[in-house]
Simulated assay, not measured.
Amino acid sequence: MATPRTVAGFLLALLPLIATPGASLALLLRQITEHGRRRALPVILGTVTGLVVHAALALAGLAGLTAHHPGALTAVRLAGGAYLIGLAAWTWRSAGRAPTRRPRHDSPAFVQALLANVLNPKAASIYLTLVPQFLDATRPLPAQILTLAAAHAALLATWLLGWTTLLARTTPRPRPWTTRATATALLALGLHALA
């Protein structure tokens, strides 16, 4: 298990990365704008589940594989960029449509957030480059990685919950321009990932 001091240092190193707006925040804005505050939860859960996937891959040794095969990270980056561009197109097309008042289930928001995180090169790089800097070779690695992943998930969920509170209070009712602004942000993130 990682020491409290190690966890604190890891969270401090993560804070600038989490504070940088990305796909999760764009998806959160879209869901709150179109469906209200309760639709934030599937986005937060999908994003956090994506972190669990990255931690599991790190535990499984993907970090070592990627270090020896740089093309694997490039493949993740390209897939993530393509996914964000597709999501941007879908979001743009949905602008102006009347949102459903009572969605039957929350899985689309969850799945979108999960895929956006799993295919996010920034999230992958945290577990490939940053996490190893906070591991102690004399302690069991799985417990340390799980502790750091849990701390990461808690910090990110808290950050997104803070944004949820802010957006729920300040976001006007759905308008095509807010949906198109979200689509533009997703497109920019996708193009940046492909660059």
Rank of each mutant, 00 (worst) to 15 (best):
A150L: 15
T182F: 00
T165A: 14
L73R: 02
H35S: 09
V118G: 02
T179A: 06
A150G: 13
D106V: 10
I18T: 15
L17G: 12
L51A: 03
T66M: 13
F10A: 07
G71M: 12
A40C: 10
A116F: 06
L11C: 14
A89C: 10
P16L: 09
T164D: 09
P142D: 12
Y127T: 09
A72E: 05
L135N: 11
H105Q: 15
G190C: 11
W159L: 12
A8G: 06
A67Y: 05
A75T: 14
Y83N: 04
P121H: 07
H54Q: 11
H68V: 08
P16H: 02
L59Q: 03
L156N: 14
A188V: 15
L115E: 08
L130K: 06
L167E: 13
R5N: 07
A67W: 04
L160F: 04
R5W: 09
H54C: 07
L191G: 14
A89V: 07
A143V: 13
L155D: 10
R39A: 05
R37F: 05
L186D: 07
G81F: 03
A137K: 04
L45N: 01
A153L: 10
G9N: 02
L166N: 09
R30P: 04
L194A: 12
A143P: 02
V118S: 00
R37T: 14
A60Y: 12
L187E: 01
T179S: 15
V76M: 04
L65H: 10
A183N: 06
G71W: 12
A89M: 06
P121G: 07
P4L: 04
A88C: 03
H192D: 07
K122D: 04
T158D: 15
L114G: 03
Q112W: 00
D136Q: 08
W177D: 15
L27Q: 07
L84K: 00
G81V: 00
V7H: 02
R97S: 12
I32L: 11
L146T: 14
A150T: 15
K122Q: 14
N120E: 13
A168R: 06
P140I: 10
A75C: 11
T6D: 09
A19M: 04
R97T: 13
A60S: 12
P103S: 01
T74R: 09
L166H: 05
L28V: 01
H35G: 13
T129K: 02
F10R: 03
A188P: 08
L12E: 04
A137I: 00
T49E: 00
L160Q: 10
R104V: 14
G190Y: 04
M1L: 04
T47L: 00
P108S: 02
W163N: 13
L187P: 09
L51W: 05
L87G: 00
Q31Y: 08
M1C: 10
N120C: 10
L57D: 05
L114S: 07
L156S: 08
H54I: 14
T147G: 15
A109G: 11
A193S: 11
A109C: 11
A19L: 05
A143K: 00
V53F: 08
G50C: 03
P174Q: 04
R102I: 15
A143S: 13
A89E: 03
L141F: 03
H105W: 02
A19F: 03
Q112R: 00
G162V: 11
H69I: 03
S94M: 02
L130N: 01
V7F: 01
L62D: 10
L155S: 13
A88M: 04
